[in-house]
């Protein structure tokens, strides 16, 4: 399929559309700039969260995830996501159902109750992989109108984008490159920092189990990035965004800290570098504020 004609089904999940719609708007807009059309998945639900529902009941998690996959199959499209939780959940479910015929049969018995069937005809992609591999760095570079030349960026991957390797297929989970490439294409400097690959703290029901404890992880992560001289953090996950952005307000309240460290989803950061406004990227409607350095 030619790049110009490429269409994807956008699996929204929960946090992107319901808390940080700026991520949704910026991603759709950038994709459209490069000729990639986004179709809505009518009737999609929570992915459901792999570390949460996967921890409570695998046998409920799987058919709910499979039902979401069916919607894209019925559209005849492959999926893209803006959250590592959605990526983790849908890609893992797709992988398991394609690998285990008996499991597929059992899952389809549940889905058959309302006339749906998992066939195994879609694929699950992360939006940053589409940026990196389908649009490509050269084309992205041509559209950078506001280079981030003097900006130091802390890259945060989240967990389920890279791991487990055997399902994700993005190479080594200890030496990743996709997000670094996307940051560098804007002219920004990608700065290494202590425990760069550490989790944000939110996943697996940990945030729900004990929010202050989960924020200790987040605090350490942000301190490490700040101490390395970073100006902001760029990531590929709506759920991490919630923990890293709103988490700063929660920490400031709970621990008496004064964090205001800018957090941007990858397409919000690229959006600014491509000339979109703070408002168009929804960055005026979150906890952390954007410094002048990112807006020049």
């Amino acid at each position: 399929m030619s790049e110009e004609a490429k269409e994807y089904a956008f699996f929204l999940g929960c946090i992107t559309p319901n808390r940080y719609p700026g991520i949704e708007a910026a991603t759709k807009r950038i994709f459209k700039e490069f000729g990639i059309e986004t179709k809505e998945m009518v009737g999609a639900s929570c992915c459901p969260a792999p570390g949460v529902f996967g921890s409570f009941d695998m046998h409920t998690w799987l058919p709910v995830a499979a039902r979401n996959l069916c919607i894209a199959e019925e559209m005849g499209l492959e999926i893209y996501v803006t959250c590592n939780g959605c990526y983790g959940s849908l890609q893992e479910a797709d992988h398991l159902l394609k690998d285990h015929p008996k499991l597929k049969e059992k899952t389809n018995e549940v889905l058959g109750k309302f006339g749906r069937e998992f066939k195994g005809t879609t694929k699950v992609h992360h939006s940053i992989v589409i940026l990196h591999d389908v649009i490509g760095l050269d084309k992205l570079k041509e559209r950078i109108t506001k280079p981030m030349n003097d900006v130091n960026v802390a890259v945060h991957y989240g967990c389920h984008f890279l791991k487990p390797r055997e399902v994700r297929g993005h190479g080594s989970s200890e030496t990743p490159y996709i997000l670094e490439d996307l940051v560098k294409v804007t002219g920004a400097k990608e700065v290494d920092y202590k425990d760069k690959l550490m989790c944000c703290g939110a996943g697996g029901g940990n945030r729900t189990a004990d929010t202050p404890q989960s924020l200790e992880w987040t605090r350490q992560k942000l301190v490490n990035a700040i101490e390395a001289g970073c100006d902001c953090m760029v990531h590929p996950c709506a759920f991490c965004h919630l923990q890293l952005d709103r988490g700063q307000a929660e920490m400031n309240k709970a621990f008496g800290t004064t964090f205001n460290f800018p957090i941007l989803f990858a397409t919000q950061f690229l959006g600014l570098a491509m000339g979109l406004s703070v408002k168009e990227c929804g960055l005026d409607a979150q906890t952390t504020t954007m410094p002048e350095k990112l807006l020049k």
């Binding site: 319901n18 719609p21 700026g22 998945m41 009518v42 009737g43 999609a44 168009e280």
Partner: peptide, 26 residues
């Protein structure tokens, strides 16, 4: 259908970035 459902304030946020006030989900 969502672990994190939408409410009125978030519908306004969606409109501010040019999206439909409610996503086409469950």
């Amino acid at each position: 259908g969502h672990a994190v459902p939408i409410g009125e304030p978030q519908m306004k946020l969606r409109e501010e970035v040019g999206l439909e006030s409610q996503p086409p989900t469950t």
